[in-house]
């Protein structure tokens, strides 16, 4: 995950890039087999322990997903970003707002 979180005048701009194939379940390999669906369905962001953003994805979110949102916060806020996918993989990363 690449997380950029920058504060300006009380507003924190958060940009998140995640490496994930986001397989839709509709893609075929060269020999015609369907690649099973496997995608991130939930992405949550907590700031200082409080949830500020919750995203739900279907298979039509692009590979290597990107989201950008903003919340009222401060430099030094601790963000915890967590995602979960349809095969119950998940990942959690932390970043401090600059």
């Amino acid at each position: 995950m690449r997380i950029r979180a920058q504060e300006n005048k009380g507003r924190v701009d958060v940009k998140i890039l995640i490496r994930h194939d986001m397989e839709s379940g509709l893609r075929k390999t060269e020999n015609g087999n369907l690649v099973p669906a496997w995608y991130i369905h939930t992405l949550k962001v907590e700031a200082q322990g409080t949830e500020v953003f919750n995203a739900q994805f279907g298979p039509a979110v692009s590979r290597d997903p990107f989201v950008n949102f903003r919340y009222q916060g401060a430099k030094g806020d601790k963000l915890i970003v967590t995602w979960m996918d349809t095969q119950n993989d998940s990942r959690r990363d932390e970043v401090i707002v600059s």
């Binding site: 739900q56 989201v67 949102f69 903003r70």
Partner: peptide, 24 residues
């Protein structure tokens, strides 16, 4: 799209009414 809903986002009172994303 085969399934029209691509993504949805939930906000709190602290979140701005803004989101950018990329869809198929």
């Amino acid at each position: 799209n085969p399934n029209p809903l691509a993504a949805q986002f939930f906000f709190t009172a602290r979140t701005e009414s803004f989101v950018a994303a990329r869809i198929k």
